[in-house]
Simulated scan of single mutants.
Amino acid sequence: MEILASRVLFRPADYSRSLAFYRDEIGLAIAREYGAGTVFYAGQSLVELAGHGHRAAEAPPFPGAPWLQVRDVYATQAELEGRDVAIARKATQEPWGLHEMHVTDPDGVTLIFVQIPETHPLRRDARA
């Protein structure tokens, strides 16, 4: 199997509210818009809000948590607070060494913003 591309697809309860959140509050750049949805750049991946189809009222929100790596999570927190975005969990260094901050989207999906310190194993070259 060959994977050519990937993205996270959300079917928000209120498309307009979620569009404003991801575009204006979080500040993701638009990759493309089509008649019934918007696709945003998110680093090496994409986030799509689909205004077509429907999300069952009783359906739980997205069960995962998108992981968004940033250069400086503390600066990102200040930027989002400057846009009046509610921070669900303030930036802090976790026991596993990453610096993380959480924001919740209009449908209750947790977005995890992550900063990887220079000394973290994720930054080490694993090649011999």
Rank of each mutant, 00 (worst) to 15 (best):
M1P: 06
M1D: 13
M1C: 10
M1E: 06
M1N: 05
M1Y: 13
I3M: 12
I3S: 03
I3E: 04
V8Q: 12
F10E: 07
R11D: 04
R11E: 10
P12W: 01
D14M: 12
D14S: 04
R17E: 00
L19A: 14
A20T: 15
E25L: 15
G27N: 03
G27D: 05
A31E: 15
A31R: 14
A31Q: 13
R32H: 05
R32C: 10
G37W: 13
F40R: 00
Y41G: 02
G43R: 12
Q44V: 02
Q44C: 09
S45G: 04
E48H: 01
E48D: 09
L49P: 01
L49N: 10
H52F: 14
H54T: 02
A56I: 05
A57W: 07
A57E: 08
A59Y: 08
P61V: 11
P61Q: 06
F62M: 14
F62D: 13
P63W: 15
P63T: 01
P63C: 09
P66Q: 02
P66V: 04
Q69E: 08
V73E: 10
Y74W: 13
A78H: 06
A78K: 13
D84W: 08
A86R: 10
I87Q: 07
I87Y: 14
A91P: 00
T92E: 15
T92S: 04
E94D: 09
G97V: 06
H99L: 08
H99Y: 02
P106T: 13
P106Q: 04
V109I: 08
F113W: 00
F113I: 10
Q115S: 02
Q115G: 01
P117A: 11
E118S: 12
H120N: 00
L122F: 11
R123M: 10
R124S: 02
D125P: 00
R127C: 04
A128I: 06
